[in-house]
Amino acid sequence: MRKTQSILPGFGPALGYTLTYISLVLLIPLAMVFLKTLTMSWETFWRTVTDPRVLASYRLSFLASFLGASINGIFGLLLAWVLVRYRFPGQRIIDALLDLPFAMPTAVAGIALTTLYSTNGWFGRYLENIGIKVAYTPLGVVVALTFIGLPFVVRTIQPVLQDLDKEYEEAAASLGASRWQTFSRVIFPALVPSWLTGFALAFARALGEYGSVVFISGNMPMRTEITPLLIRTKLEQFDYTGATAIALVMMIISFILLLIINLLQNWNRRRMASH
């Protein structure tokens, strides 16, 4: 199994422990999704997961999650940079608040965001004037998903940026590189693995999110229904297999997407290492 020999200890025990823990906590429970779905006939399965309403929900869920993760990708990088490299008043408070979207129960986040963006809210009232509706539209879904995924990119980049040696930047600068060149050629490549990790995690988390979205999306069939909501409606009809079928499809698609991101990252790391 092991490809290259390393003198570092602990491969065997670490592998054993990791696999055992993953099996107990993740694989056995997740196997239930497969088992439950297996009780369906193929046709029912296919009909369930390709129902037009379900298809519309995949589109919204994946697109809004991607947009949310992208916004976090850009601003998360910026935030991590600003927090690690600069000093400004209120910095520590902002740093502390960044974890908030995790600590806040998702329903509370949803309610607070809806309060802000609905027609009579602080933001909603001005946005409405310029013709932008956020609450109860797909845009609202993006806002909610941006909020709940916000800590990921910042928090994955931050430790790497903190530990990044400045010597390379100094070397690059003394060799005549401009600041932008130093950033794009020296700093950013070093951050790419964690940046991609953060993006992937924010994206993944957004795909599954339910609590905050149902408040702000309006849940209109075909328009603002996310996939997790459809899973919930299946359960409401006591249709456990229908729910697990949709969940299974979501799981497989997200697994493939995450795998691609991880492979990309691995490939990038090797490329960097060989330079």
Partner: peptide
């Protein structure tokens, strides 16, 4: 990727699997 997976699973399903 397996380690990432729980993030992508809808919380309802994360609860449901234990019920199942």
């Amino acid at each position: 990727t397996l380690i990432d997976l729980p993030f992508a699973i809808s919380p309802i399903i994360s609860g449901l699997i234990f019920v199942l």
